[in-house]
């Protein structure tokens, strides 16, 4: 029974991952999902290297690597429901007896794994191109931090994704969200430099804390303060997930009441 559920979970996840990327061939996937984001990382690292005349650009490698997960956590997950609408399968899903939240989590699962792999690819790129050193770094803690970051970003993705039920141009929303994270998460310049109000936004966005933590870990520092930040990031993820979940329910009810399922 439990085994069945788990099997269904993985099948769902794999299928929806395939539905999104399957129509692209493998080459396109590599270019769009890996090479382009890596190029963006390289660009910002080079820029930092020039601007700050810095030899050690580890912080930029770290920050931009973590940002790589947005390809999945925002675009991938955001596309899950939106894609259903495009292909006209959303109304089937809404009408199905399954718990929509679980369906959604199942479908996002592959994206979380893929996102972690992307972050690692980013770090490896930093190691190869910019000589980032992982000597003396507590790798398990770093891994845990990446997992929490991806989780929080996925919660954010769900919130955006639930908007996909009503907004027609998701591309605009998703791109704007990803760009905001690029600017406000502290990956490329310290959050403290931002105007006050933008700083506030930074700290309610996912990834800001994770990037800070990752940088400390890279310095070989971990204090109890780091664990507190990790918990906060986890909490942010849970909040986004909850709001996203409520939005999903609300949108579904609303759509059913307004008999507007067909606009999906």
């Amino acid at each position: 029974m439990l085994f069945d559920i788990i099997k269904r979970f993985f099948r769902q996840s794999l299928l929806s991952f395939k539905a999104l990327f399957g129509e692209l061939d493998f080459k396109v996937y590599v270019f769009v999902q890996i090479i382009d984001p890596i190029l963006q990382l390289i660009f910002f690292c080079l820029l930092a290297k020039y601007v700050y005349k810095a030899d050690n650009i580890t912080p930029w490698v770290i920050g931009n690597s973590l940002l790589l997960c947005t390809k999945n956590t925002i675009f991938g997950i955001g596309f899950v429901l939106w894609g259903e609408r495009i292909f006209g399968t959303l109304k089937l899903l809404v009408a199905a007896p399954a718990n929509k939240f679980l369906v959604f989590v199942g479908r996002s699962f592959m994206h979380i794994i893929d996102a972690m792999i992307k972050v690692i690819i980013g770090l490896v790129t930093g190691y190869l191109l910019f000589g980032v050193s992982f000597a003396g770094v507590n790798l398990p803690i770093l891994g845990l931090n990446i997992l929490i970051a991806v989780f929080a970003a996925s919660g954010f993705g769900l919130l955006i994704c639930s908007m996909g039920l009503r907004i027609r141009d998701m591309n605009l929303i998703m791109n704007t969200a990803a760009t905001l994270l690029l600017a406000l998460s502290g990956a490329n310049f310290p959050v403290e430099k931002l105007p006050n109000i933008l700083q506030k936004i930074s700290y309610i966005l996912p990834l800001t804390r994770s990037i800070e933590i990752a940088n400390s870990i890279m310095h070989g520092v971990f204090t109890s303060n780091l664990y507190r930040l990790m918990l906060q990031e986890l909490f942010i993820g849970v909040i986004y997930l909850s709001i996203g979940y409520l939005m999903l329910q609300y949108m579904e009810n609303k759509a059913r009441k307004a008999a507007s399922l067909d606009i999906f």
């Binding site: 692209l24 061939d25 080459k27 396109v28 590599v30 270019f31 769009v32 090479i35 382009d36 190029l39 963006q40 390289i42 660009f43 080079l46 820029l47 290297k49 020039y50 601007v51």
Partner: peptide
């Protein structure tokens, strides 16, 4: 394979032509 091409042509040109930092670096 247009999607692949168009997505990967932006940054390389920006980097290689030194739009934001001199290409000498």
């Amino acid at each position: 394979n247009a999607v692949a091409l168009k997505n990967c042509i932006g940054y390389p040109v920006i980097i290689l032509s030194g739009m934001l930092f001199p290409m000498e670096i």
